[in-house]
Design a protein around this nucleic acid. Structure first.
Lengths: 342, 342
DNA sequence: GTGAAAGCGCTAACAT
DNA sequence: ATGTTAGCGCTTTCAC
C-alpha cells in the first residue's frame, strides 16, 4: 500500500519527461506513441490516479450536479433521483443530494450557495416558489433546472407537467363510472402542487356537472400517509353515512390516497365498492397495494430523465437559452376504482 | 447580476488589505475588529462567496462523503441515505450518491476510484463481498465504513446487524402462534443478506423442532416484489392445497413478503388466517400495507446514522482504529401474522 | 512533439 | 495584528 497518492509531477519525474507531456500523454492528445507508452508505464508503477480537485480548479468544472428536494425519502423524489443518476453517471457526473428545507427562504439560500462552485449545475424540485427564489435561480452561478412549475416566462429551464389536467382526468373517470358524490383530499394550498391540483379539481367538477352540495374538500397538513389518514377521517365525517356518504375520493397524491383507503377501512367502507379512490404520481407501492391504486402518472422517471438531459446540454453550453419540457399526465386505472358501475 | 464570481483577491483589493488578512478576517481568526468589519463590507459589496474547489485543494478536504449502494431506489437504502444525510449535512458535509453495480468487481472499482480524492470518505453497503473488495477497502485512500457484514477482523469499520438472528425471531414467533408448516422465501444465496438469512432460517427451524418434511425453501432472483411474487408462486405450488398447505411463510425482506401476500391472494388464501407472513427490514410501506406487515426491523435509519457518525469521527482522525457498531434486530408484530391461534 | 511556466482560488507558514 | 509568499494538483497557453 502506497502511503500517499502519487501526483502528476511524480509520474513525470518517474518517466523522465515534462509535466506537460505527462498530462497530454494521459489524455491522449498530441503525444507520440512512445511518450504515451512511457508515461502510462510510469503512472501504472506509481498507481497514479488523477486528482479530481486539482483538475476541477484548473478546468473550472466539478463534474458534479446537485439534486435538491424537500424530502429525499419521498418516493416521487427517489424515482426522480434514480432517473437523474441514471442519465448523468454514464457521462461522468456525480450526483450530490441536497435538501431545500421547508421554506422558500431556505430554498433560495440553497440556490445562492451555488456561488461556492461545488457543482456544475442543480436540478431542483421546490415545493413552493416565490419571487426571491425565482430571482436567485435567475442569478444562479450555474445552470439550474426546475422540476415543477413551468418557469419559461422567467427565463428559467423547467420540466413541468399538467397536474391540474391530471386531476381532471381522475374526476372524469370517477364520473364515468357513475360516482356522483365526490371528495377531494388535497395537500397544503400554498404549495405548487397543492395549488395546481385544487385548480384542476375545481375546474373538473364544474365541467362534469357535479352538484356543489355533493362535493367535499379537505386539506391535509402535508403530502404524507399520516397526514392523509387524519384528514381523510375529517373528510368522511363531514359526509355522514347513508345517502350522504361519499362514493369517490380524489387524493392529491398516492400517499394521501393510501391514507384515504385506511380511513375508509376504519369506517367499514369497502374500496372501490362503497368508495372509489384515486391517487396521483403512480408510485411503485401503489401497484402492489391492496387494492391496487388507480393513479394519475406524472412521469416522475421521465421528468427526472428529461431534467438531467436538459442539464447535460446546459453544462456543455451554459450561455444557452432556457429550455422547457412538458410531460403529460396519464390516468392509470387499477382496482381502487375498478368495481364496476353501482 | 455580477457576471463573474468575485475571488478573495478581489475582496482584498477592494478592502485595500492583504490577501491573508482577508482570509483571516472572513474566518474570524486573529483579525482586529476593524479589519473584520472592513473586509466584511468589501465582501458584501462584491457579493463574494468562497470557492469550494480552491479551498478543497488547499485544505485537502472536500467536505463530501459518498454513499454507495447497488440500487438507490430500494427503500432500505433510501432510509439509510436519509439518515446519513441528516447526520452529515449539519456538519457541513455534502452527500454524493453512487451505485456499486451488480458485481463485486464493479464495487471494488468504485472503492478504488476514491483515489481521485473527490470525497473525504465513503459509506458503502455492498450486496456481495469478496477478497478483492475487502482489499480495496483496506487500501482505500479515504476512510470507508461498510454497512452490512461485520468486517472488524479485516480492520475495516463496519455497522452490522444480526439478520440471521432476526430470521430466528420470526421463526420462533410463527411457531409460538401455532404454525407448523413453514416456507422460506429467500433472495440470492451468494449475497451477504441471502447467506445470513438462510443460515438463520436453517438454525431456527431446527431449534424450534420443525419437521424437515414440513419445510419448503424457495429462492427469488433478487430482493424485489416482482421476483418475490414469481418465486412465491413456485413456493406455494410445491406445497399443495389441503393438509399439506403452508401455514406460514418467512420472507427474507419486506419486498419479497409483499410478493408472497400477492401470491397467497391469487390462490384465495387469506393472510394471516390461512398463511401468516413475515418480512424483514420494516420499511415504511409495510406499516400501511394491508394487512400490515409483521417484520424484523434491522434498524436501517439507526444503521445509517451510526455509519455517518462513525464516518465523522474517522474524517476528523483518519489514523484511527477501525470501529465496529452492531444494531440488534427487533421483531415487530403486525396484522400479517396476528390472526390468533388456529 | 515536447518543455517551461503561468495560474485556477485558497490557506497557512513565516516574517514583520 | 498584518503582510509576503509558497504551494495544494492540474491543464493549457506559449515557445521551441
Amino acid at each position: 500500500m502506497t502511503s500517499t497518492r502519487a501526483t502528476l509531477q511524480q509520474v513525470a519525474e518517474r518517466a523522465g519527461v515534462s509535466l506537460a507531456s505527462t498530462s497530454r500523454a494521459l489524455h491522449g492528445t498530441g503525444a507520440s506513441k512512445a511518450m504515451v507508452e512511457r508515461v502510462r508505464a510510469a503512472a501504472a508503477e506509481l498507481g497514479y490516479s488523477p486528482d479530481a480537485v486539482g483538475r476541477s480548479l484548473r478546468m473550472k468544472k466539478t463534474f458534479q450536479i446537485a439534486f435538491a428536494v424537500a424530502d429525499i425519502g419521498n418516493p416521487v423524489y427517489v424515482e426522480m433521483m434514480r432517473a437523474i443518476h441514471g442519465v448523468l453517471a454514464p457521462h461522468g457526473y456525480r450526483v450530490v443530494v441536497m435538501t431545500t428545507g421547508d421554506t422558500t427562504g431556505s430554498t433560495a439560500d440553497l440556490v445562492r450557495s451555488l456561488n461556492s462552485g461545488f457543482v456544475d449545475g442543480m436540478v431542483i424540485s421546490p415545493l413552493r416558489t416565490d419571487d426571491r427564489l425565482i430571482q436567485e435561480i435567475q442569478q444562479a452561478a450555474v445552470p439550474v433546472v426546475v422540476i415543477g412549475r413551468a418557469l419559461g416566462d422567467h427565463g428559467i429551464s423547467s420540466v413541468s407537467t399538467d397536474s391540474a389536467g391530471g386531476i381532471g382526468a381522475a374526476v372524469r373517470h370517477l364520473h364515468a363510472i357513475g360516482r356522483r358524490r365526490v371528495g377531494f383530499l388535497n395537500g397544503p394550498l400554498d404549495t405548487t402542487p397543492g395549488e395546481a391540483r385544487q385548480r384542476g379539481f375545481d375546474a373538473a367538477v364544474r365541467a362534469e356537472g357535479f352538484a356543489a352540495e355533493r362535493i367535499e374538500v379537505e386539506i391535509a397538513g402535508d403530502f404524507t400517509v399520516a397526514a392523509g389518514l387524519e384528514a381523510a377521517r375529517r373528510l368522511f365525517a363531514r359526509a355522514p353515512d347513508g345517502a350522504g356518504q361519499l362514493d369517490a375520493v380524489v387524493a392529491a397524491n398516492d400517499l394521501l390516497a393510501i391514507g384515504v383507503i385506511h380511513a375508509a377501512r376504519e369506517l367499514g367502507l369497502s374500496v372501490p365498492q362503497d368508495v372509489a379512490v384515486t391517487g396521483m404520481d403512480d408510485i411503485e407501492i401503489g401497484r402492489v397495494f391492496h387494492p391496487s391504486l388507480t393513479s394519475v402518472s406524472l412521469g416522475s422517471t421521465e421528468r427526472g430523465r428529461a431534467a438531467a438531459q436538459l442539464m447535460l446540454r446546459l453544462t456543455e453550453d451554459p450561455g444557452q437559452q432556457a429550455q422547457q419540457v412538458a410531460v403529460g399526465p396519464a390516468l392509470i386505472v387499477r382496482k381502487s376504482t375498478d368495481g364496476g358501475a353501482r
